[in-house]
Design a protein around this nucleic acid. Structure first.
Lengths: 163, 163
DNA sequence: TGACAATAGTTGTTTTAACGAGTATTGTGC
DNA sequence: GCACAATACTCGTTAAAACAACTATTGTCA
């Protein structure tokens, strides 16, 4: 049982299992790394989820995606996608249009302004990722990725994402 | 560049770097694992943060902790600790008392009812951790822990925790 | 000592997420 | 083809986070 986190949390009670220690380390690490991302996004008045949606839409290309598909690709649950899009549409970053084939469906497409916003964020975001993990070797990164995928791999019902 | 997450997110655009791939894997993994925890806690009407506070207070022992120290050990900022404690105090899980030495300080202590609540959660929580990672070898777990600690280790200004 | 800054919490307000019910449209089985 | 379920969102309400301003107490130092 490694001592670093134990010391960090100043808690006398040791972890009750390796699994718990791993879990706590995960949360702590994500929190630590996300903080920097949040700072950067905040300068552009974007929430992490809004940024997530924009990237999903950029990845989807010009034809756009139904709301449900956006919901399926991120962690947030679908009922909230509507309001998430509301804000992005209000700012002109995304356009929304009801489908003609199936009038229940609403297609969201990233607008030029949204693409521009992402463009300005790409480099600093990339820089952030790089510098915050610059002390990790490529081998470390690959090992970590493999282990994380393995963690989720159990049974594996996961079909959501959050870029 | 491993393909699992790429397939999961159905996005044609590949990761722009290993660091980004790692970061996305982290978020996704935490989200996936936390979901189960949330379900369990919800049956006891506890939020993840409330559970966190209870565990911190249990770890601190009978003398309790100042609000600021609780805030320091978790991610939540101090202004929010007050209201977090409000709910726990209202439910009789925690007691609060102003310090005599320094009357600015408020000590929070876990109440017997809070300890009981944690007791009933300990086993299922432990079970959850174990089963959700049962396919990982002990070596995997240790390697993952070490890598996560290394990730946070950079410069390292982290003095917060979230159990 | 007495003004001023620093610390520790609290309270108020505004956003934001979460949960659930409601509406419109399409698919299905009798 | 018509009731009925399923799908795809939307809307309304409630709970929680985030941010900032405020009070009370203590520490500092001219």
């Amino acid at each position: 049982m490694s001592g670093r986190l134990l010391k960090e949390i100043k808690q006398t009670r040791p972890f009750s299992s390796l699994e718990e220690e791993l879990f706590l380390n995960l949360i702590r690490t994500v929190d630590s790394l996300s903080r920097d991302h949040g700072e950067l996004l905040k300068t552009h008045l974007l929430s992490s989820e809004q940024y997530n949606v924009l990237r999903i839409l950029r990845g989807a290309g010009g034809s756009g995606l139904p709301c449900s598909e956006i919901g399926a690709r991120m962690v947030t649950r679908s009922p909230d996608i509507t309001r998430l899009l509301d804000k992005l549409v209000a700012r002109g970053l995304v356009t929304r249009a009801r489908s003609e084939e199936d009038r229940r469906v609403v297609h969201a497409t990233i607008a030029p302004q949204g693409l521009a916003m992402l463009s300005t964020l790409d480099r600093p975001m990339q820089e952030l990722n790089r510098t915050s993990l610059s002390h990790m070797s490529e081998r470390d990164l690959r090992t970590a990725i493999a282990l994380l995928e393995k963690m989720r791999g159990r049974g594996n019902d996961d079909s959501k994402e959050k870029p």
